[in-house]
Amino acid sequence: MTSDKVYPSSKAAIADIPDGATILLGGFGGAGIPENLLVAMADHPARELTVVTNHAGFGERGLAVLLRQGKVRKIICSYAFHRSAFVFRELYLEGKIELEQLPQGTMAERIRAAGAGISAFYTPTGVGTQAAEGKETRTINGRDVVLEHPLPGDVAVIKAHRADRMGNLTYRGTAANFNPVMATAAPLTIVEVEEIVAPGVIAPESVHTPSIYVQRVVRGEDLDLRSET
C-alpha cells in the first residue's frame, strides 16, 4: 500500500496555511510558478505572510494579487525592482511591505542548507557589500568569506511538470529553478503539476525530487495560466 498524496483541488491543498507563515514560492520569470495555488491563496484568509521567491512578482496577477490584498508582510528575494514589479514597488514606497534582498546563489544555497541539515556555511559571495553587513566574515585559505545561515520555510508552494501519486516529481526545462531545492526546505511541500501518473510511470532514475520531500500534490485547474509573460 502506497501513500496517496493527491488533493482534489488547489483550494483543498492550501486550506490550512496559517497566518504568519513563511512561504517558499518557486518560479523564475514566467517558468515554474504554481499559478493555480497562488489563485487559491488569493481566496484564502492567511495574512502576515513572508514570501521567499526569486523576484517580487510581475504585472497584476499571481503573487501581485496577494501583495495587492495586503497579505504579504515581507518579501525575501534576489531581484525586487524589475520595472514590471510595479505592485510591489508601490507598496514598498508606501512603507507597507518589508524587503530583504539576497544574492541569488546565496538564497539558493541557504534554502538548500535548510533542507540538508547544514547549520551554516561560508561563501565568498557578497563579501565587502551590503549583503554581508552584520554577518561574520573571516579568511579561509586566503579568501574572504561570509557566514550564511539556512533559510527554511513553513510551507513550500511549488510547481513541477509531472508527479506520481506518491509525490515523485519531474520538472521541465528552466521551470525547475528554485522548485527542487524549495521542496526540501519546508515541513509541508505543496506541489502543483500539469499531470499526475501512477507510481512507477516515472522511471526511478528519472525522478528529480524524490517523494520523501512532498506532502501534497494537485493538478493545476487551469494549465494555461501564466501570471508573468
Binding site: S78, Y79, A80, F81, H82, Q101, L102, P103, G105
Partner: peptide, 20 residues
C-alpha cells in the same frame, strides 16, 4: 545594482557571478 534614494534594482545573481 543600486543607487540609494533613486534606484534599487536588485543584485540577482551578479554578486555570485563576480566572485565565481
Amino acid at each position: 545594482w543600486a543607487i540609494p534614494g533613486r534606484m534599487i534594482s536588485g543584485m540577482g545573481g551578479a554578486m555570485d557571478l563576480v566572485v565565481g
